[in-house]
Design a protein around this nucleic acid. Structure first.
Lengths: 191, 191, 191, 191
DNA sequence: CATGAATGAGTTTTCATTCAT
DNA sequence: GATGAATGAAAACTCATTCAT
């Protein structure tokens, strides 16, 4: 994720901002707090980002891209739908497990009014590619012939819900349970 | 929902706060704005609520209770599980359709750090009663023998996801689609 | 000058701002300093004025109007030009003597880039009325047949220069000297 | 003006500072902006000038000296007063026309509180030499027997006023008008 | 009871100055 | 010498809360 040509301070700021925004929300996070966590001066943040809004958008875009790549990199679009689904689910789970704060950050800022056009465009783009799986599955009569955006939302938000509850300590998301949930979700969308 | 012993001003404040908190979040909503929307003086809010945090908790508790009652009032725990599920789903959908801002408010503030112990307790209580449906269903071998909290979370968050996307204009949640989604979700949890 | 319907705090802020802006300039004057001098909280200033720019414009407009009225109120446009000139000169001197900071404020902010359209319009309007004196004088062949704006600028800026130097302690502007300067200026513009 | 022993960077800084200070004022001009306009690093400015105040004083002194020399170089103190006056006026106009920003800079910073003792002394010195013209003129009974500082201020500020208004686009200062104004000003001070 | 003007601590942001390279 | 990234104090401005009316 970290680009080599990005100065270390910029990285530290992006990381601190992501963590704090995901814990406390955008308006609940003061810039000096980000500065402190990133171990830079408050003014330094403004050398890299034009405003607090620019910062949250930079964080959003970085992680939206990372999530997209984590899921879609070499995605087996030609495999049987059942396997495609399993792949998708466990890649999503893997990403969330490895980057829990970033995953929560993305969910928390979904549709936030301070996201700029570029962020919105990236969000839309990811959504579009995700639908492709459903279209493929429907073409082979493996999935229910329902609107792909609805099926996509069902699956995605089911996972998000599980992950959030596990993070809140309400639920233990063991590998076994993850696999059980995957079965449930598959049965929700299969024909 | 409105208690007769609640003065009209208190009601107006709770309503305005709920609407604004659901649109702009807790930290993004200024108290004077709530006062303006409620058509009361800013000081008046502090006659009814000790602080901004107390206000958000009052809103949370009021609507958590309302949601709980909307779903559980005379719930047909003895009906066949399939029917119980349908009842649950459409009651939830009905509540969200009638009180969209309140429903979003509840979701947005789920697990928020400024919720007090009473709010958390109510959240837990609602969750507990919800599980009962799954326990009943499992006892009659109609539902998958998986942890009720997991099944509950899957269903609940699937609906929440659909509703949020429809509110964001990404999805039209027609009665037909709502029924299709209900089928999907039932198939996710049925044996 | 002070409007009776203006709250006392608003007046105190306008007065403090005028004094400080005239001493230290717009950018050199911090809002907390204005608040301190006006003996109000810093936030109070923003209850009355939307921004620092709005404040400086309010001060400008108030005093531009006051100056205009001080000079033009019942101006003897039908008197002999020599008397008209004397009247103008001593009214100007009187205004400056009574409101030295306000007079310096107006000069200092003349053509400032943060003046808004209304301020600019008032500035133009005052200028226009001032020219009338020269047009009248030229019609009666009492004044040099030169562009009124040039004659006006000569006179006005000559007085401003005298006043500024006297304020800086470089020059004592006694009534006698003021009268001598008036003669000089009259001879500059008379035929 | 440029001294041969002054490094090119120092010159570039002085030029950029003069331009920006005259456009935006002292407090309205950020040092990094000066650096950018001068095409040097921000730190470089501090190799040549101890502080922002030292910089503005250096600019002030340089141009005060330049103005003094432009006017007094080989000044015809023995010519008839009328000619002396004309010489003075057109030298002043010539300087302002060739160095409009510098001329405005000097006017804008006249009596500014951040001028140091050396700047003030230079300002005084220039003023003193300027008076000499009036003393000479009065000795030959060509000028009004009024305080030289007053006559000097009248003339100087009349020109400054004309120049500022022409810069603000309120007045066209053609050679013809300049000559007319010169006549006006001569008549103001002549016996 | 109800108000809303007033406040000052806190927010985002800027900028004069420094210092490691 | 020259740089410009880094800084933190201070700027403009906001807002939760109080209190005189």
């Amino acid at each position: 994720m970290a680009r080599d040509d990005s100065p270390a301070k910029r990285e530290a700021i992006l990381k601190a901002a992501m963590e704090l925004f995901s814990e406390r929300g955008f308006h609940g996070t003061a810039i000096p707090l980000v500065a402190e966590r990133a171990e830079v001066g408050a003014g330094t943040i403004y050398r890299y980002f034009a405003s607090k809004e620019a910062l949250v958008n930079a964080v959003y875009q970085r992680w939206k891209l990372a999530l997209r790549e984590a899921i879609l990199h070499d995605f087996p679009f030609t495999a049987p739908p059942r396997e495609q689904f399993r792949t998708f689910w466990f890649r999503l789970a893997d990403f969330a497990a490895k980057n829990p704060e970033a995953f929560l950050f993305l969910e928390l800022h979904h549709h936030a009014p301070y996201l700029d056009d570029e962020s919105k465009a990236m969000s839309e783009a990811g959504r579009g590619e995700f639908y492709r799986f459903f279209e493929v599955g429907q073409a082979t009569a493996s999935l229910k012939p329902l609107p792909p955006d609805m099926l996509a939302t069902l699956i995605w938000s089911a996972f998000v819900g599980l992950f959030k509850e596990s993070r809140a300590g309400q639920l233990e998301l063991t590998p076994e349970r993850l696999a059980q949930a995957e079965t449930c979700c598959w049965e929700a969308v299969r024909l």
